[in-house]
Amino acid sequence: MSFTDEGATEARVFGALARAGVDFNLVYGGVDSIQGRVYGLLTIAVRGDAAAVDEAISSIGSGVTVEEVHA
Rank of each mutant, 00 (worst) to 15 (best):
R19W: 00
A18G: 02
V53G: 06
V13H: 05
L26G: 03
Y28S: 13
A50N: 04
G29L: 02
Q35F: 05
A8K: 05
V53P: 05
V66W: 12
G63D: 06
G15R: 02
A11L: 09
A50H: 02
I57Q: 10
V46I: 15
V31W: 01
R37W: 00
A71V: 09
Q35A: 12
T9Q: 01
D49C: 07
T65F: 05
T9E: 01
V66R: 06
E68F: 09
D54E: 15
H70C: 02
F24E: 04
I44N: 10
T4A: 13
E67Q: 14
A56P: 05
A11I: 07
Y39P: 01
G61H: 08
V46F: 10
V27F: 07
S58E: 12
G21R: 14
A8L: 07
G63T: 07
Y39E: 03
G48D: 13
E68Q: 13
A56W: 03
L17D: 03
V64A: 09
Y39C: 01
A11P: 00
F24C: 06
R12Y: 02
L42G: 07
I44V: 15
R37I: 00
S59K: 10
V64Y: 04
R12S: 10
V53I: 15
V22K: 14
V13I: 10
L26Y: 05
G21E: 13
H70L: 07
V64H: 04
D49W: 03
I60L: 05
G30D: 04
R47D: 13
N25G: 12
V31T: 10
E6H: 00
R19L: 01
A50W: 00
